[in-house]
Design a protein around this nucleic acid. Structure first.
Lengths: 216, 216
DNA sequence: GTCTATATTTCGATAGAC
DNA sequence: GTCTATCGAAATATAGAC
């Protein structure tokens, strides 16, 4: 390899590194701004300010506001899908559903902005991720419903409609992210403590598990 | 009364009638547009088109976009507050909480746009109704928590944290409005039928009531 | 790859005739 | 009370020097 090619590769690697880091910073800022202002309320200027970059740089890395938004939503969707790994290899509903609720509560705590962006996207008719709903999410849901149905058939839990049980889990766990501001306001304006998060998780788990005939 | 005064009063009454009807039409259109596009995504032009009026007329009845939005949110809040009338005079948790869940599910079905506007408002930090959260909603919540605590003390239900029980009811019932698009997509793209709404209501009721130690 | 300046569009709001 | 025309502000996106 001659000197020019070597330098070229190093520079290319450095550029790739810069690109990856800047994209990360921009996506993190965008997630927060989209969550707090909605797609329509968010501005490229706000995102740029939060990322500490000139507005023009955002357009250098993401051609349009919609491209940037799409990437944010896709990132969240990935996190969601991996939340059910614990679900699949569980021996029964107490372990599987319990672990799934714990995982979803942890996501609500660690990624509240992502949860809000997802909620907002769905509430507005899923203009960007409708195809994901119809393919990936539908398949994912059908698979987990089948697992729950097997548990019911095996007499391990009460015959609760599996689909609506999933909806109840999604609703109760995501509520702590999507309505976090309301919860904080009703908590004397203070964020939930570690202990309060544990209590909330335990309450959701125990009510749902008892509600489906698991635990006493 | 002279002729001029009589005509004046009639004209004034007609004007009042026109105003009330136009405000109703505008508020209904605004609720839908704000729900589907968010505050930032909604435009006065979109609302005007949906109301079948020139854009300038909206500004004649509502000075600013924010004034119009504020009225929409307030209307929803009123509906929410009255959902718990059944709660208060109930003999016990089976009747009180059961009726509350039914009422909340009915609101999710009849006022899905309002529920979405409320959810969006809270998700964005409640810029318009923060004072309501801190006063009216806080008092309302404290009152119902006291009722639930009395039921627990009387041994009528399991000792579940009353606050988090309320959150679970809000989350599960509102989910059917706020995530209605996702639910419809997972329902082969079709809206829930009467029967499916009944099933959903019964599932939510039975899981929660069994989860708090009511029913067998 | 960065950043200032700016082109272009769109929106909220208003003026003023009817 | 209605509606057309339009103003001024703000947003997305781009041009072009560095």
């Amino acid at each position: 390899m001659n000197e020019n090619a070597r330098i070229s590769r190093i520079q290319k690697g450095k550029r790739t590194e810069i690109r990856r880091e800047n994209e990360r910073v921009i996506l993190e800022a965008a997630e927060k701004v989209f969550a707090e202002a909605g797609f329509g309320g968010a501005t490229m200027q706000l995102i740029a300010d939060m990322a500490g970059l000139p507005k023009a740089n955002l357009h250098y890395y993401f051609a349009t506001k919609e491209d940037l938004y799409r990437r944010v939503v896709q990132n969240i969707f990935e996190i969601w899908l991996h939340a059910a790994d614990s679900f699949d290899n569980a021996a029964g509903p107490a372990e599987g559903i319990g672990a799934y609720i714990e995982a979803k509560m942890e996501i609500s705590r660690r990624h509240p902005f992502g949860s809000k962006v997802w909620a907002s996207e769905v509430m507005h008719g899923a203009p960007v991720i409708q195809d994901y709903l119809e393919t990936t999410l539908r398949e994912w849901t059908d698979g987990r419903m089948a697992v729950i149905q097997r548990w019911i058939d095996a007499g391990l839990m009460a015959p609760v409609n599996p689909r609506q049980l999933l909806y109840m889990i999604w609703a109760t766990t995501q509520h702590y992210a999507d309505f976090g501001h309301q919860i904080e306001t009703l908590n004397a304006g203070k964020p939930l403590t570690d202990r309060q998060w544990r209590d909330a998780t335990e309450t959701v788990k125990s009510v749902i598990l008892r509600g489906i005939g698991v635990l006493v």
